[in-house]
Amino acid sequence: MKGHYARQNEPGFASGQPGLEESVKFGIVAATQHPQLNYTKVNYSKAPWATSPSQAINYVACHDDRVLWDKLTVANPGASEADLIKMDLLSNTIVFTSQGVPFLPVGDEFLRTKGGSHNSYNQPDSVNQARLGPQG
């Protein structure tokens, strides 16, 4: 959705990166068997692995690495704030409308930022606290 976690400058589906549609659909159906999905085009699994949607956790960000807002900002340096907000909204909308169990880290609902930090375990509270993103 947001781009590869390790290749921070790489945009994802929410940023308009082509070729990720089947991978997103795989997440939408919670890694289950679905007749409208071409598993050969999924970039991280070539077959369904869940027998029930409740076996899959859907998320676009967690406490590790960059939070969603920061990742979108790094991967889309020329994007306007309005476009970044749309990307964030699309990402989380897909998580919450997909099959499976949605997971949302604290603060993502209000564009949380960690000031771009991707490894904040030893950073002060000013970085790790849930603080508002650009409009806050």
Rank of each mutant, 00 (worst) to 15 (best):
K2V: 13
K2I: 15
G3L: 04
H4I: 03
Y5N: 13
Y5C: 13
R7L: 15
N9I: 03
E10A: 08
G12T: 00
G12C: 01
A14Y: 00
A14C: 13
S15H: 01
P18Q: 12
P18H: 06
K25C: 08
K25D: 01
F26G: 02
G27A: 08
I28N: 05
I28R: 09
V29I: 04
A30H: 01
A30W: 00
A31I: 02
T32Q: 11
H34W: 13
H34V: 05
H34L: 08
Q36N: 15
N38S: 11
N38F: 06
T40S: 13
N43A: 09
Y44L: 15
Y44F: 15
Y44E: 15
S45D: 12
K46A: 14
A47K: 14
P48D: 02
P48N: 05
A50F: 00
T51W: 02
T51G: 11
A56S: 09
Y59M: 14
Y59T: 12
V60Q: 08
A61K: 03
A61E: 11
D64F: 00
R66A: 09
V67K: 12
L68T: 02
L68C: 07
W69P: 01
L72S: 10
A75I: 03
A75M: 05
A75C: 06
N76C: 12
P77M: 09
A79E: 09
A79R: 02
L84S: 04
K86L: 13
L89A: 07
L90Q: 14
N92T: 14
T93V: 11
I94F: 05
I94Q: 06
V95E: 03
T97S: 12
V101K: 10
V101I: 13
P102L: 05
F103C: 13
P105K: 01
V106K: 06
G107H: 03
D108M: 07
E109H: 00
F110Y: 13
T113Y: 09
K114W: 10
K114Q: 15
G116T: 00
S117M: 07
H118R: 10
H118D: 15
Q123I: 04
P124I: 01
D125F: 12
V127W: 04
Q129K: 06
A130N: 08
G133A: 12
Q135C: 14
